[in-house]
Amino acid sequence: MFSYIVRRLGQMVLVLVGLSILLFILLQLAPGDSAQIMAGLGATPEVVENLRVKLGLDKPLYVQYWRLFSGLFTGELEAVTFSTTVVDIVADRLQATVELGLFGLLLAIFVSIPAGIISAVKKDSFADYAVTTVSMIGISTPVFWTALMLMIIFSIQFDLLPVSGRGATLWGWSFLTVDGILHMIIPAVALSSVMMAMNARLTRSSMLEVLSEDYITTARSKGLSERIVIVYHAFRNAILPVLTNVGMQVGTVVAGAVLTETTTAWPGVGRLMIEAISRRDMGLVFGLSLFIAIFYLMSYLVVDILYAYVDPRITYD
């Protein structure tokens, strides 16, 4: 396993280098001049040129690339928009995203997986219809609409929760304060709604497939209780596709629950990415994209490692 992890980490470095080159090319191809956009409408050619020099955009492309790539690892890459380094601004906003993503994901897992199991076990029952209908609605409903509806119902009509924002924090974490927790409920539920729906449907279909296998019939014929059959025999085999999906969702929530963060004014990296793109902050877009890529790659690695623990038939050595 150890050599597998080392090999995968080595591959990750290659992927990141390739990705950084691709990203740089895309940034060059994107329409719009960073210096011009930062200088604003009405800027004189001299002002734009001065800004271009300051941003290093007058240098040859390979110099510009190296400045971005090396700057990210030395921590000196500048997020010009915020007059700070990319590392600092990402660190500033990451806590909010991680916190929201984690709560949203946990909520999705703890609600959707039991719901999917019940739906499969009680196929064609009222519970099954209820889960499939609700999950269909969850998948079909845009996150921003869900968030706005939650705000109207729980903040405006019943005055139970704050409308938006992050509220009070302790050491940068919202979940350590009551005000912070109250602020997190609407964004976390909105964010989890789509994940919840997908996971419930995936769990249901995966469970249905496993429940029709011969080894389940054998387990039942041995006289094992239904609970043991479902939890230890069926669910353990059905969890692999769900695990893959959850792994992808980890990457997605860090990549930025852009719509959730924008609608609920949550100060995370999703919104930061939109701000960076709209202001053509090359350094910030570059750094943030690579950072998100690292998170994606790491979450896939963790999922692959978990496969081996969940299913002993899978080995990597």
Partner: peptide, 11 residues
């Protein structure tokens, strides 16, 4: 407070 979505700001 920056609130980018105007509908949220209205609420």
């Amino acid at each position: 407070r920056p609130i980018p979505k105007l509908a949220t700001a209205m609420l």
